[in-house]
Structures are given as C-alpha cells and as structure tokens.
Amino acid sequence: MIADNLRYFEQQLLGSKARLVAVTKTHPVERLQEAYDAGARLFGENKVQEMVAKQPELPQDIEWHLIGHLQTNKVKYVAPFVHTIQSIDSLKLLQEIEKQAAKHGRVIQGLLQFHIAEEETKFGLSLAEAEEILQSAAYQAMRHVQIAGVMGVATNTTDEAQLRREFRELRGYFEQLQTRYFAQQPAFREISMGMSSDFRLALEEGSTLIRVGSAIFGARNYGVSG
C-alpha cells in the first residue's frame, strides 16, 4: 500500500519542480523502511525525540527534514544528522543551529517559516521579521546554516480560494527574499507548502516541497503499534 501511494504522488509530481517529503510522525520504523524500499528518501518529522529515535534504525542516505516547531534547547540532538530544518522562526534559533552545526563540522539547510494561515496557533515570521534576520550581522557571519527557501502551513480549510491566496502569499515572500538577499545564491530555491489535502493547489502555485503523511502511510497511530 505504501509503495502504491508513493508511486501515485511521484506521478502527480511529474513535470513539476517539486519533491515529496514523506511525513513520518507517529509511524513505526518498519513503515518508514517500507517507504524507503519503495524509493522515498526525504522524510519529515515533527518532533525531535521521534526523529532522533528513528534515524539510527534506518538507512543513512535518508534526507531528514524537521518540519515541526523547534525549541533551541533541542537543536543539539538533531545537529549531527538533520539535512533541513524547515521551521526556522527566529534569529535565536538560527544562532543555535549555527553553533551546533559548527560543532559537527556540518552545514545544515534551513527554511524560514512564514505565518500565512488564519489560525493564531501556527508559528511563523512576517516578511519584516524575516528581513530583520537576514540583515543582521549575526546572520551574515554564519557559515554552518544555509537558508535554502521558505516554508508555510496553510489554514486548515477546504476553501480553495483562501488556500490559493495563502500559497501565493508565501511564493511572494520567496520571490522578494530571492531578489533582495539571494540573487546570487542558486541554493535558495525551496518553497515548502502543500500537504495531503491541498498539495495540488500548492503545486500550481509553485511549491517545490510537498509534505505528505496520511495519504502515504494511512491514518496516524497515536500510541498504537502496527
């Protein structure tokens, strides 16, 4: 089933620039291995603890993306192996990622998370806050974090017009930052938006990373194995 679901999404992505992040939260290692065997290589986790527990049990060429809110005191646990932290929402967090990545002689990719949803509970920056970070001397001195793009979580709604507006807003932020700060940096290329329910709209609006969990792995198992 997982292999069939992955094939379906890979077909949906044909002809687009987008890659699939298989969101693996709450799913056991066996199911992640099944996804790996079917060709998945980008795995997204929301919680540090879960990612740290699963990573040693799985093949080492997996590109791990942390997509949930990250507290600065937990960065040290993922710094040895995480590929991309999609949820950067403060200079303080960036500074900690820089510090911990330096300890391991690594460069960690990061996406700036923007607040695009109507819900107040979602984390994220405004454009002004993102620019303040990028203009800071602290950021400009960093050598172990590479900002590779932007990420956003749309409102949980079936209103397509609203979702499209929010995805366009995020793409607009990406384009403004690209022009102002990253014009000479081809590595700044990711727009992470779209999930199981709204990925088609996100693709139409220029997403390069879609984050899909339940449509690959089925319903989540909270506290239930198998």
Rank of each mutant, 00 (worst) to 15 (best):
I2M: 03
N5C: 05
N5T: 04
Y8K: 11
Y8M: 06
F9S: 04
Q11R: 14
Q11D: 15
Q12S: 11
Q12T: 00
Q12R: 13
S16V: 05
S16N: 08
K17M: 10
L20F: 10
L20V: 01
V21I: 15
V23I: 14
T24D: 02
T26A: 08
E30I: 01
E30T: 09
R31L: 15
Q33M: 15
A35T: 07
Y36V: 12
G39V: 10
G39Q: 09
A40H: 01
A40K: 03
R41W: 03
R41C: 02
F43V: 01
G44M: 04
E45F: 07
E45Q: 03
N46R: 04
Q49N: 13
Q49W: 09
E50I: 12
M51W: 08
M51V: 11
M51F: 10
V52Q: 06
L58P: 05
L58G: 06
E63A: 14
H65A: 06
H65Y: 14
H69D: 11
H69E: 13
H69S: 14
T72M: 01
N73S: 09
K74Q: 10
V75A: 03
K76S: 15
A79W: 10
A79N: 06
H83V: 00
H83P: 02
I85H: 01
Q86Y: 03
D89T: 10
S90V: 07
S90T: 10
E98V: 09
E98T: 08
K99L: 14
A102H: 08
A102D: 07
H104S: 03
H104G: 01
Q109Y: 11
G110F: 03
L112C: 00
I116P: 00
I116T: 09
I116Y: 02
A117Q: 08
E119K: 04
E119V: 08
E120W: 01
K122C: 13
K122P: 13
F123R: 09
F123V: 08
L125P: 05
L125Q: 11
L125C: 10
S126Q: 05
S126F: 02
E131C: 00
E131T: 01
E132G: 02
I133T: 02
Q135N: 14
Q140H: 12
A141I: 00
A141K: 15
M142N: 03
G149T: 02
V150Y: 06
G152K: 09
T155D: 14
Q162C: 12
R164V: 07
R165H: 15
F167N: 03
E169N: 09
L170P: 12
G172V: 04
G172P: 10
G172S: 14
F174G: 02
Q176L: 14
Q178P: 08
R180P: 03
F182E: 11
Q185M: 13
A187Q: 14
E190C: 07
S192K: 06
S192F: 11
M193W: 02
M193P: 13
G194K: 08
G194D: 12
S197L: 09
S197G: 12
S197I: 00
S197A: 15
S197D: 15
D198Q: 05
F199R: 03
F199N: 04
R200M: 13
E205R: 01
I210L: 12
V212C: 02
S214T: 15
A215N: 11
I216T: 00
F217R: 01
R220P: 05
N221C: 07
S225G: 11
G226H: 09
